[in-house]
Amino acid sequence: MNVLGKTMGFSLGLTLIFTLVTYLLPQVKGEAPVEKKVDLDSLTMDDFVALGDELFHGKGTCTLCHKPAPLGRAPDIEGEDMVATAAERLSDPRYKGVATDAASYIHESMVEPGIYVVAGWGKKGSDDSESPMPHVNKPPIQLSDMEMDAITAWLLAKDGNEVTVALPAVEAAARAVEKSGVAARSQEPARAPEEALSRYGCVSCHSMDSRDALVGPGLVDVGARLDADEIRQSILDPAAVIVEGFPPAMPADFGDRMTVNELEMIVQYLAEKKG
């Protein structure tokens, strides 16, 4: 009887432990995907600016790097008047681009970030000759022209400046929306670790195939340095251990945004990277 009681107690204890772990891990509700409609026929400039705000803080992954000092790894453009900032940079003798105003400068900085690197913000060891910023119109971020225009509109409007970006034509906007899936369904969980790493902006800040430092350290050999538990902690609580030489710039909300499966796919994928 004593043995049976101990066995039942042990089983109950395991059940409670697994239940607790389940609550601690990030979850995703098993609900049907929610449709997000975009009424292109009645799209206003206010709607377009609001879309730019959403893209800047979401899909564009801009806030991973563009933060106030000392956390930022790029200029705090959200806290700057971009019309005044653009005028200052366009007059810099180091500027070699073709932009003529704030709107064209913002667009140029997204598609060709290496044309002009703001002093002090270049890739480490490049003497400000190389930009650590990815081309946002290419994978993994891959913003469309319409999405980049929306971000530009928001960056202009947020400080009360005139928005000089034109609203997209209904036909062009419809094609862009259809291509991006904005009007179709909300994103379903990633099916592979590479997809998850791209979706959450990891590859924008970390090199996966070298030790080269981008915004964060290279991860080609992270599995030789950290075990799975340490990698998981670095994702869920990035402030717990800060790599020397890098500011605490990594977002702390991945635990809320990732599903359990996405997190574990990334953890196991990185744990196997031994260099």
Rank of each mutant, 00 (worst) to 15 (best):
D237I: 10
R211P: 00
I17W: 09
G9W: 08
L14G: 01
L167R: 05
S91F: 05
N261A: 14
F246K: 04
K6V: 12
E244D: 14
S204L: 14
K123E: 12
E35A: 11
Q27F: 07
D41A: 12
D209V: 09
T259K: 08
E262A: 06
A192N: 10
A99F: 03
K274E: 08
G125V: 08
E262K: 03
T63L: 14
V222T: 10
G60N: 00
A157Y: 02
S131W: 09
K96Q: 14
C202N: 05
A150D: 05
S207I: 01
P132I: 02
I77M: 02
D76G: 00
L51N: 09
K274T: 11
G114H: 15
Q187H: 15
K67L: 14
S186Y: 07
T7N: 04
P132N: 04
C65P: 10
S91D: 15
I77C: 00
M250N: 07
Y269R: 13
S204D: 13
E54T: 14
K29E: 13
V49G: 04
K67R: 13
L51Q: 09
V3Q: 13
R175M: 13
L90W: 03
P93Y: 03
W154G: 02
L156H: 07
Q27P: 04
T15V: 15
V163S: 06
E171T: 13
I77F: 10
Y116S: 04
S104N: 03
G181I: 02
E178C: 01
H135W: 08
L55Q: 06
D159Q: 10
G30D: 14
K96M: 09
H107A: 04
G122E: 06
P140C: 08
Q233K: 12
E112V: 07
H66A: 01
K123F: 01
V177N: 12
V260T: 15
D76K: 00
H135D: 12
I77G: 00
G30N: 14
V163Y: 04
R191I: 08
S198R: 14
Y200T: 01
P93R: 02
V38I: 15
F18H: 03
V222C: 06
P132C: 06
R191L: 15
G114Y: 11
M148N: 07
W154R: 05
M250H: 07
G5R: 12
R225T: 10
R175E: 15
K37E: 13
L167P: 08
S129E: 12
V243Y: 08
D92Y: 03
E130S: 09
P93E: 01
V165R: 02
V118W: 09
D53E: 15
K37M: 11
E272S: 13
R73H: 06
V118N: 04
T63E: 11
V98G: 08
P33G: 05
F18V: 08
G30A: 12
L197E: 06
D76W: 02
G72Y: 06
T100W: 10
G9R: 09
M250S: 07
P248Y: 08
P193Q: 03
A183E: 11
P193S: 02
G97I: 01
K274G: 02
V21F: 10
P26V: 03
K29T: 15
I141W: 06
P193D: 01
H66E: 00
N137K: 09
C205M: 08
V3Y: 12
S104M: 04
V215P: 00
E264Y: 08
W121R: 01
V118K: 12
E80N: 07
L14C: 13
L143A: 04
M148W: 00
L156M: 05
C62N: 00
S131L: 09
E88N: 11
E54L: 10
